[in-house]
Design a protein around this nucleic acid. Structure first.
Lengths: 190, 190
DNA sequence: ACCTGAACACCGTTCAAGT
DNA sequence: ACCTGAACACCGTTCAAGT
């Protein structure tokens, strides 16, 4: 005797991401998600293996969206490599401002079951890898891409953690970093 | 009628940090800490306001220890600014390897009550501020310090999140970043 | 003054029973 | 085939009662 589906994995993940941003990581409970999609908590286990699995799906969706945003920003970016770096960095930072909780969790300490799979992270950062090659040349493409990603995610994390609250111009520090990194990576090209 | 103290705030925080690293953030429960220090969970509320408050104390202790390590590394570092940057970066990364969970949480999304106070983060990063001045000069000291901290914490976070798992030499990427940043920041001095 | 057991509201998760 | 209520083990937190 079939029973009608009252929700879908997609809707479950969408609501999970909304709740994550609105109520924080602690607010992401199975009951909150269930009530948002109109079922009871046990029904969610037909769609996901558990809370950590649901968190992983939410974070992977976030990672893929970051990748999309970066791709789109690159399409409309200046032709020079340093201009492209600025476009990638700004697009990433803008996205992070829209989904700060998920973005912050992406590179933080997580239970294994909640950790985004490496392939998903890799596919989401393919554009940054190409940017590393444009800036620093093929010999240093991976190291350059990692330097860029590390700086961006670190800066954004510090900003949302309030580490910049006391003083100084955050925008200026961001532009300073973009320009310093762009110059440094180009100088390493061989 | 006084009752003897069976534990202390210091011991509670020490055990909380140990449990945090051994069992992860989810493993840090009031009951686990209470049993480690030899009392029942409700007794912990004589020492801390709640779980988030205890987490904050643990993270602040971690931040101060990072600062100590960096200070000591600087004392034995080469006299040139770029050598000092390498010493600071390596000391930070070594400490993060010893306490990856706490270090990763430090700049991640946290409930307000668990977030380390800005003054504590600032005092722990005073040495990096001085390093920023040595590298980039007084006009850019804050922006340079933020660039350094952002890159270090981002890199370390990515490493522990497993973002580097697939390929490439992580050590090479780290040294590449240190050298690129050192050169870039020195070039901005005026 | 600190510690405790008992209690409360809430979790994640399992599972037999419904349709 | 999916959904549900009931149940279980576990949380954080409060508080009256013990010493």
């Amino acid at each position: 005797m079939p029973a009608p589906e009252r929700t879908s994995t997609e809707q479950v993940v969408t609501e999970a991401r909304r709740i994550l941003e609105q109520r924080g990581a602690d607010g992401l409970t199975m009951q909150a998600v269930a009530s948002a999609v109109g079922v009871r908590a046990p029904s969610l286990y037909k769609r996901v293996a558990g809370r950590d699995d649901l968190l992983r799906l939410a974070l992977e969706a976030t990672a893929l969206e970051v990748g999309d945003r970066v791709d789109r920003a690159l399409a409309g970016a200046p032709a020079d490599a340093r201009g492209a770096l600025g476009a990638v960095a700004d697009a990433t930072r803008e996205y992070a401002a829209e989904a700060p909780v998920a973005f912050g969790l992406l590179f933080g300490p997580l239970p294994d079951a909640a950790r985004p799979r490496t392939e998903v992270l890799a596919s989401a950062s393919a554009a940054v890898l190409a940017l590393g090659r444009r800036l620093a040349g093929p010999d240093h493409e991976l190291a350059a891409a990692r330097t860029i990603t590390a700086w961006m995610t670190g800066f954004i994390g510090m900003q949302h953690a309030g580490a910049f609250r006391l003083s100084g111009d955050v925008e200026e520090a961001w532009r300073f970093g973009v320009e310093a990194l762009g110059a440094a990576l180009e100088a390493r090209r061989c």
